[in-house]
Nucleic acid binder design. Structure first.
Lengths: 209, 209
DNA sequence: TATATTCTTGATTGATCGCTCAAGTAAGGA
DNA sequence: TCCTTACTTGAGCGATCAATCAAGAATATA
């Protein structure tokens, strides 16, 4: 009968780190918003840094059930799934008026250098994300060129997502994100075209010969 | 005969914000490392936030003389210039063992939401950066398809740079950055190929017919 | 030289920082 | 019932935070 105090602390900290950043968020604020005393927080986490690791583990555990799972279920086509995922992040930016962005990306730039013991946990989150993209690319089989570096392309998709979100937040406009996704679409369309047997054309999905 | 105290403060603050982040850097640390008393700092900057704006103005003024200018001079080909620029950032990452990254990108994620009066100054830095890329793409003329969205592609190049640096820092490896640049290269190669008159081939630069 | 302005000194402010701890309550097993 | 462990309480620790200010030094103009 473990209390949900720990979970409440994790979710509150995750939200505040996303809204304000790690350094700018005080432990006292986390306690107040979680409705918990500092002694309880330090019962479950030995330091603010340990709490940050807990938050990153929380994200690692919830990527599939919250993000990847629903998208895989909603979009059967592995290539379109990539753009459905990017559209999911776009939807978050619309809902927040170009705020927040990606919690892992934010922490990556804030603490990778200063907290070397935390960095690997950020790395794992990114690795899991792009590994799922790589699996989708493999699922696409010979619709993509045989000599394509699918692992490299999977990291490229993450690059596009993070870089697009960054510029969207900086400009307070979705334009740069949409521009980036459009360029990625053009690139992947060119890859699909290159892998297509000569003499065939395709405009909508599931058309062959 | 304005003293160089202000400049010393700006450069010290820029370095510390890059190494530690904005929130994690104390004003007292800036003063100590700049060899200045806090009263002097607050004589030139009315607050820590105003100092941050000063740092962003400093970056805006130095992008051309420090980064873009030398690269334009060293690489005459406008398309190769893009990859020379990316190689310049890669060189910084090699020199710092995958630390620091881009100072503007770091600040973009840390303060865009919490300091709305600072965000436009980040936006300007990004806009200047991608505007230069756009000028290079225009310089490439009909080597690129006429219907290409060159402004969108210029933002895409910034996306690739920032996303690649982020993953390089998170993984402590240049791999994801190199992967991303390689995918961008493949995309731009495809664009060059598409714009090439039929019946011609090209492998090295400055070859025609 | 006289005067005004610019810049520097550095101690000090109240607030907040991450964190501790002794005491107390709750819950489970025997 | 007794004992142990798990968890909570909340005041309080020393340190550091961003920022202030009265005083003085340096500099420029006249």
């Amino acid at each position: 009968m473990a209390p949900d105090t720990r979970e409440k602390i994790l979710q509150t900290a995750a939200r505040l780190f996303l809204e304000q950043g790690f350094s700018a968020t005080g432990v006292s604020t986390i306690c107040r918003e979680a409705g918990v005393n500092s002694g309880s927080l330090y019962h479950f986490f030995e330091s603010k840094d340990a709490l940050l690791v807990g938050v990153l583990n929380w994200y690692e555990e919830h990527l599939d059930p919250i993000v990847m799972g629903p998208i895989e279920h909603a979009q059967p086509d592995p290539v379109e799934r990539i753009f459905a995922l990017l559209a999911w992040y776009r939807g978050n930016m619309v809902a927040t008026e170009c705020r927040l962005g990606c919690p892992i990306g934010n922490l990556a730039l804030e603490v990778s250098d200063t907290h070397p013991q935390v960095r690997p946990h950020i790395d794992i989150n990114f690795a899991n994300w792009s590994a799922r993209i790589e699996a989708w690319l493999n699922e696409a089989g010979d619709r993509l060129p045989a000599d394509l570096d699918r692992r490299g392309l999977s990291k490229f998709v993450l690059t596009v997502m993070e870089g697009g979100l960054m510029q969207a937040r900086a400009s307070d406009e979705l334009g740069p994100f949409d521009d980036s996704v459009a360029q990625l679409r053009a690139y992947i369309d060119a890859l699909l075209e290159r892998a297509r047997p000569t003499g065939t054309t395709q405009r909508t999905e599931e058309t062959s010969a």
